[in-house]
Design a protein around this nucleic acid. Structure first.
Length: 828
RNA sequence: GCGGAUGUGGUGAAAUUGGUAGACACGCCAGACUUAGGAUCUGGUGCCGUAAGGUGUGAAGGUUCAAGUCCUUUCAUCCGCACCA
């Protein structure tokens, strides 16, 4: 019987399909595992990154099925989004057709890979049923005050013609098309994710151990919590008059209250309302206004190049010293963090320092470093003229700080905050970098926001019984403007509240909304699929996800949003837990010739071609064998060949196994050395497999273990040992190369071995042990000793074996590590 | 700049608590079978050396009977964030 990948694979794929082999059952008394891989965008074809992702989750799913768990291993498509629309523009096609054609094609690709997905629970997020439930949740969130509409300076991508969330702006450019973003003033809906900032941060602790450290750190940094002091700075009378008494103060936030006595100027963001007022009312000369405009209009990249600013000619009063402090506009002050205004302490902050140097502003030192080498305080930071040449940002002892002189700078923070609070001039505050999540997109191919604008009632929610608010089919996608806005009839409706003529919201939602709850939808079954998004019982049983597998690129966006939605759903009473994903496995990239596979580099490998040439099992084996899943995977064509050869050998040598319907019983003591060794290797492989699935996820070592066992089996000829070996090895390998293993298992064992295997401890018991012998820690030789040999016997044997190196030298120490080695320490 | 990770043969990588470094593969070399082989099988393969032996996990120190593994310093590469006050 020759190995023929195509025949075997199509045969079993058909069998699995016809038997519904991978459908979970709705019996909540069973032990469950929820294995999830991040669902794909239906871009057209699978790439190797997908194949890696789904091969990993499939291995988990198949393993746990063998262990008799009720396994949910679903797949679907994240099918809304701009690429569909862009493709439609390019090919003059319909985004819906394009999307669903791709889904059909990719679904076939999944099947040819032998992936054990549930079919019944498959869906695409662009399905109207999904939109219907999602819009229901959106209405609930609006009612809870978690969704609001506000005008703001937004990130606008001129290429995609839409706004983007902060998380979707990478280095000042659009995350999809790399076009530099510009700021645009427009209305937009926001999710109040900031309300959950602290919980999102705190609950990261619950994920420690289950999630990669790197992802936790990235989320922590993104949330960006910082504690400090917030206080008002008041204008002096002269400045107030200059401002037509429109403003008397502005507030600032600082994490360094310990440096408060070193404030020598303050700076406002160019977008700050006071600056805007001064520009609009000609309180500044035209050149100054021109400079401010230039700062505002600079791209975020240009703005970071060099610090620049301009004095406003007004002053505020220092809250403690009562001295006058000049107010500047500075391009490095960001309007959307804190209050868009800062106190500047050039002596102890790098940015403030650079700015002060450039504009020759005073630099007042108020912290003296503790460094013992520095007898002269800040002297080492000074040049010949006695001027500081860099800021000192470390800790130290306060100087020039009135009653706080001599106090440790860290300790003084609390004391100074207290002083502000006691005098009612400031308060302790926490700031976050995280901002509310803007979800409006001015595009067609997304879920409509189910709101109606009524002249008399304002924003009104669509009635739930009228959901979904579906997209119109008769649409022209031109790439210019919002197609929903331009549609002749779609937006016109009557107000759900008063019945008057009204207009629908034409913005659609960010597609990250759909992926924020899709894992909950999979919990629903046929019984209630149409009726509701999911039931309490179903969620309670299946969630949380036991293993979530996907790319690190979602470390912030998707994973943060999904965590947010989970907490919101909890507060809406839909579920009772805080975190959706118990264990997260982030797979590494697939590389070729040292670079990420990409069409532009021309270094891609097409999964379809690979499967056509070698079969899915070869692709799966290579992917799991070449590197541990979290590491980058370097593609290697001859490595693929090697995997193919192994499968062929594995298949051919199954001829050595008898056809049985139970594992043979073997009298271990009657076996030869080689036979015993082969059995040991087989059970070692089994042991390792258990560890791999539960702790280590290093499938490469599991497969290496099976290869070792194969090599050992091949070195002996006992038919029972072969049969037992295959009984176990096909079970271990089934999650990796399922088609081949089902074929062998069917032929030899009537599929009875594809289940949990018991480890026979007897094979690990040996009558003699091999020990290493080291002299002075250097491995020299080895000895074979009886398993019950005493320490003295062993050491004298070791000395005998190592006599050549010991010779006449003095033995200083003898170390015996049971089952490992003997180390003889000699002198001279 | 801040944060995280990774450095082991020609290559991908093993080494679970400090205990015989390089498992398992790829590649390469030799042999067998073959009309033929880019098939299959057998053996070899870190480096230097004919050998005995020496040497070896980015570099330099340290702890230890013993270090890829622990500690200190340092270099390189990759990733994430980046004027966040």
């Amino acid at each position: 019987m020759e190995y023929n990948a195509q025949n075997i694979e199509t045969k079993w794929q058909k069998y699995w399909d016809e038997n519904g082999s991978f459908e979970p059952v709705e019996d909540f008394s069973l032990e469950k595992k929820y294995i999830l891989s991040m669902f794909p965008f239906p871009s057209g074809r699978l790439h190797m990154g997908h194949v890696r992702n789904y091969t990993i989750s499939d291995a988990f799913a198949r393993y746990y099925r063998q262990q008799k768990f009720n396994v949910l291993h679903p797949i679907g498509f994240d099918s809304f989004g701009m690429p569909a629309e862009n493709a439609a523009i390019k090919n003059n096609a319909d985004p819906k057709e394009w999307t669903y054609d791709n889904i059909d094609y990719m679904t076939k690709e999944f099947a040819t890979l032998g992936l054990s997905f549930s079919k019944e629970r498959n869906f695409a997020t662009s399905d109207e049923l999904y939109t219907k439930f999602e819009q229901g949740f959106i209405i609930d969130m609006y009612e809870k005050g978690l969704l609001y509409r506000e005008k703001g300076f937004l990130n606008w991508c001129p290429h995609d013609q839409t706004v983007l969330a902060n998380e979707q702006v990478i280095d000042g450019c659009c995350w999809r098309c790399d076009t530099p973003i510009v700021k645009k003033d427009m209305n937009q809906y926001y999710f109040k994710i900031t309300q959950y900032a602290d919980e999102l941060l705190e609950d990261l602790k619950k994920l420690e151990g289950g999630w990669p450290k790197q992802v936790l750190t990235m989320q922590e940094n993104w949330i960006g919590k910082s504690n400090g002091l917030e206080f008002d700075l008041y204008f002096d009378d002269e400045s107030k008059a200059k401002l037509n008494d429109k403003f008397s103060k502005f507030d600032v936030f600082t994490t360094r209250p310990d440096t408060i006595y070193g404030v020598s100027y303050t700076a406002l963001a160019p977008e700050h309302p006071i600056v805007a007022y001064m520009c609009e009312n000609n309180l500044l000369d035209s050149h100054t206004i021109y400079q401010i405009d230039a700062m505002k209009n600079a791209s975020s990249i240009d703005r970071q190049k060099e610090k620049s600013g301009v004095a406003l000619g007004v002053n505020v009063i220092h809250p403690l010293t009562k001295k006058l402090v000049p107010v500047w506009v500075a391009n490095f002050v960001l309007m959307d963090y804190g209050s868009g205004a800062v106190m500047a302490v050039p002596a102890h902050d790098d940015r403030d320092y650079d700015f002060a140097k450039k504009y020759d502003l005073p630099i007042n030192a108020v912290i003296e470093p503790y460094d013992t080498d520095l007898t002269k305080g800040l002297e080492y930071l000074k040049d010949i003229d006695g001027n500081l040449y860099m800021a000192y940002t470390g800790v130290g002892k306060l100087i020039n700080s009135a009653e706080f002189d001599g106090i440790d700078s860290n300790e003084s923070k609390e004391k100074i905050i207290e002083l502000f609070e006691n005098n009612g001039i400031g308060k302790k505050t926490t700031n976050y970098k995280l901002k509310d999540w803007g979800v409006s997109r001015q595009r067609y191919w997304g879920a409509p926001i189910p709101f109606v604008h009524c002249e008399s009632c304002g924003i009104v929610m669509e009635k739930k019984e009228n959901l979904p608010v579906a997209l119109p089919a008769d649409i022209k996608i031109t790439g210019e403007g919002n197609p929903l806005e331009k549609h002749p009839t779609w937006k016109h409706c009557s107000c759900p509240k008063c019945g008057q003529d009204a207009v629908r919201e034409t913005d659609t939602m960010d597609t990250f909304v759909e992926s924020s709850w899709y894992f909950l939808r999979y919990c629903a079954s046929k019984t209630n699929w149409e009726k509701e998004a999911f039931s309490d019982e179903q969620i309670k049983y299946w969630m949380g996800v036991d293993h979530y597998i996907g790319g690190i690129e979602h470390a912030i966006l998707h994973l943060l949003y999904a965590r947010f939605f989970t907490k919101v759903f909890r507060d809406l009473g839909y579920l009772e837990f805080d975190e959706p994903f118990d264990k997260l496995l982030t797979q590494g990239m697939v590389l070729k010739d040292g670079a990420k596979m990409s069409k532009s580099k021309g270094n891609t490998v097409d999964p379809d071609e690979l499967i056509a040439k070698y079969g899915a099992d070869t692709a799966r084996l290579f992917i799991l064998f070449a590197a541990p899943p979290t590491q980058e995977l370097e593609w290697n064509d001859s490595g693929v060949e090697g995997s193919y050869r192994f499968i062929k050998r594995f298949f051919d040598r199954s001829a050595n196994s008898a056809s049985v319907d139970a594992k043979p019983i073997i009298d271990h003591n009657s076996l030869t050395k080689d036979e015993k060794f082969a059995r040991k290797k087989v059970y070692e492989a089994l042991k390792r497999a258990e560890e791999v699935y539960t702790e280590r996820y290093t499938f490469n070592t599991m497969i290496a273990g099976v290869m070792e066992a194969m090599n050992a089996l091949n070195a002996q000829s006992n038919a029972d040992v072969w049969t037992e070996g295959y009984w176990i090895l096909t079970s271990i390998m089934e999650p990796v190369i399922p088609h081949t293993c089902w074929e062998i298992s069917k032929e030899k064992f009537g599929l009875k071995n594809l289940e949990k295997q018991e480890i026979m401890q007897e094979v690990f018991v040996e009558d003699s042990i091999t020990l290493g012998v080291s002299i002075n820690g250097k491995a020299r030789t080895e000895i074979e000793v009886a398993k019950d040999a005493t320490k003295d016997e062993i050491i004298s044997l070791a000395k005998e074996a190592g006599a050549k190196w010991i010779e006449a030298k003095e033995i200083v120490k003898e170390i015996y590590v049971p089952n490992k080695l003997v180390n003889i320490v000699i002198k001279g």
